[in-house]
Write a protein that binds this DNA or RNA. Sequence first.
RNA 1: GCGCGCGUAGCUCAGCUGGAUAGAGCGUCGGCCUCCGGAGCCGAAGGUCACAGGUUCGAAUCCUGUCGCGCGCGCCA
Length: 547
Amino acid sequence: MADTDLLRAELTRAAHSLGAPADVDPILERPRDPAFGDWATNLAMVLAKKLGQKPRDLAAAIIERLDQSRAGIKSAEIAGPGFINFRVASDVFAEGLRGLIVADAAYGHSSAGESCPVNVEFVSANPTGPLHVGHGRQAAIGDAISALLSATGWRVTREFYYNDAGAQIMNLATSVQARVRQLGGQEAALPEGGYHGEYIVELAQRYIDEHSTDSNADDLDAVRRFAVRELRKEQDRDLQAFGVKFDVYFLESSLYDDKRVEETVRRLVEAGHTYEKDGALWLATTEFGDDKDRVMRKSDGTYTYFVPDVAYHVTKWERGFSRAINVQGADHHSTVTRVRVGLQALDAGIPTGYPDYVLHQMVTVMRGGEEVKISKRAGSYVTVRDLIDEVGRDAVRYFFLMRKGDSQLVFDVDVARSQSDENPVYYIQMAHARMSGIFRVGDIDSAAITGDDVDLSVLELPEETELMKALLDFPTLIAGAADALEPHRVANYLHDTAGKVHLWYHKAHVLNEPPPIMRARLVLARAAQIVLRNGLEILGISAPERM
RNA sequence: GCGCGCGUAGCUCAGCUGGAUAGAGCGUCGGCCUCCGGAGCCGAAGGUCACAGGUUCGAAUCCUGUCGCGCGCGCCA
């Protein structure tokens, strides 16, 4: 139903009749300057060389062969070095708006994913402390990617992987144990590389309160179970406050319980890519492009983290996820090669690029013009909870999503918490609230607006045309953002579109205008409201009716 | 040293997978409140797209090199 399909088909037909290869795929884009028209194509320039003609001559020939009414355009002009600029027939806009309103909550959605299962793993924090800002960025990005994939027809499973089995968990347990003993008045040093955050002391105190028979924390296993359980609860609370829900929580420890780790080692050995050296078992990852071989089983008999990671991804594959996406901080990028290589070494028919990775760069938190590095509770890092408490869920989400993942992000707390025009998230929400306000003040049921029997050709202001174009671009934008796994495109689109909404709102009154004008503008207001709401929905940000 | 990412306005960043005169917000300067909410709108100034080559009709975008910043490079996760 894309409004460009007809035009593209006509262009293809015209190009073929001029001798273009069978696989021509005309590209249509919005000209930078709206004065050039509604759509432009570089088709003539692309074909000029192949057909041995001058671009402008070719453009003229293409236009001549175009059935303009069938293509849904009212004019086609040659410009510059050989662009063809089009103006669409006004009923194309009208039909687009009506279709938008009928689709309502489904507008922008598609069935491109054909209900294929996809696993999106994100956050995956160790249960050794509160979630930090990096986890926050992952949570926002992972959740938005999941929403984008759902909207484009994929069957999404949001998954959280708990590293609850490794050495760092023992580290946590002994850290808490030391704090318990300190609280009991004993000399007890934190272990090497132990956790220093204030939250460890809090955990120790609660352990004492709840375990009167073990006031010296001699039962290290009990301490471990207690600490992991409490920290998982705390992480769950933070994620809930952030509005993120997971479908599956996968425990690393279960891979040991189910013997999947050993099974994976066995299969790797069987596949013939392993060898023993210095008392350890190695995987020859260099055979698959890694820069050095990796240890699988240490000389002390335990496994490196890499083995359960591979075993874990085997379960994703075996659970039927032909597509898997991992959202991680760039500080983990070395695992990308290793996991993929490990899967390849199994010779199990898993594709080379499995799983997909979306890596995001580091986050810097600024307050008062200075970098914030310390959270009192967590010690060496700022927590997600700190940010949510200070600036609110919507602003935190937006700020984590407004930038491309692969550039570093500066989170300016002062801007995020300001309730003014400095703050882009309020700007977008305000645009939505304004559209809602029109219906509220006019006492009109927005859901009853259909656009049927309304003459939309009276929407003639340039601000109205620009707004309509933006609204009709939404499905393409969503498809592109989902395809590229780049939710920041949605954030930027919404900010841009909100600007067009404000502009129009300022320029054109809706209520108390002559009935034909008012009815047409109500349709536009309804369409804008739907697009803003659907876009915010994908980002996990609320769309308030009033602010 | 090697690998990955980044370098665009004073600051924070977009730039739709190679297109037309380089875009936004903030900041600076100057305007607009009988109004469906001013949490808004309009205008101005501000650029060697890090640098040097290359590819082609056409490069911020692709390739090579140099410089700078971040992250990673363990029988840690």
